[in-house]
């Protein structure tokens, strides 16, 4: 593998290249989720009868998943702290906890969706459910991508390699968490 170009090591904007890029990535994600959720909110405000559909979502499961994501975010930031102190193995351990959180989230989500689909609430049954599955599905894809990257970074961090990446995946992971913080009331609480 070739070494990094000198361009990557410069930071004329006063910020390491990787962190800057992650923030731009997040800006582009904000508008993707923003467009979808803005559409959902417009529809939701105009269709009050959707609340009866929303009543079939499980607040308990949603709350549990929020708890799981918040906890995994907590571990991610502890991993960042450990990485900054130069303790690769400790950072890797925290990252694996984060990974476990993401995996739990996905497992719970699969259980939840299976139940709902078996009860007849599929993506095509109503536009509320279409938004429900599309928004949560898009978010779940981000969780999936996140835990794969976390695993890759954790393996390297254990060997004290590329420790700055622990912070980068952390920022991304917190963003995924923030998206869920908004999805939870939008899809579950507001009945």
């Amino acid at each position: 593998m070739s070494a990094r170009p000198i361009a990557t090591t410069r930071s004329a904007a006063g910020m390491p290249t990787g962190r800057l890029a992650v923030w731009w990535l997040i800006a582009s994600e904000i508008v993707i989720f923003g467009g979808l959720l803005a559409s959902y909110i417009m529809f939701r405000l105009a269709h009050d009868m959707w609340s009866e559909q929303a009543a079939h979502t499980s607040t308990a499961i949603g709350a549990f998943n929020t708890f799981v994501l918040l906890t995994s975010s907590y571990f991610a930031v502890l991993g960042h702290k450990a990485a900054e102190e130069g303790d690769g193995p400790k950072a890797a351990r925290y990252l694996w906890y984060t990974f476990a959180g993401g995996a739990t989230f996905l497992a719970v989500k699969s259980y939840e969706w299976t139940t709902e689909i078996l009860h007849g609430y599929t993506i095509a049954s109503n536009t509320f459910w279409s938004f429900y599955y599309t928004a949560a599905g898009l978010h779940a894809l981000h969780v999936l991508a996140g835990i794969i990257i976390i695993a890759i970074i954790a393996v390297a961090a254990r060997r004290n390699e590329e420790l700055h990446r622990v912070e980068l995946i952390g920022i991304y992971w917190h963003f995924v968490d923030v998206v869920w913080i908004f999805l939870f009331p939008l899809l579950y609480i507001a009945k």
Binding site: M49, S51, E52, Q53, A55, H56, H119, G120, Y121, T122, A124, S125, N126, T127
Partner: peptide, 18 residues
């Protein structure tokens, strides 16, 4: 009124507590 793709689901939605 439940706006559904197929009638089976419609029936289900309507007997819900909503």
């Amino acid at each position: 009124v439940d706006i559904t793709a197929n009638p089976e689901h419609a029936a289900h939605g309507e007997d819900g507590h909503g």
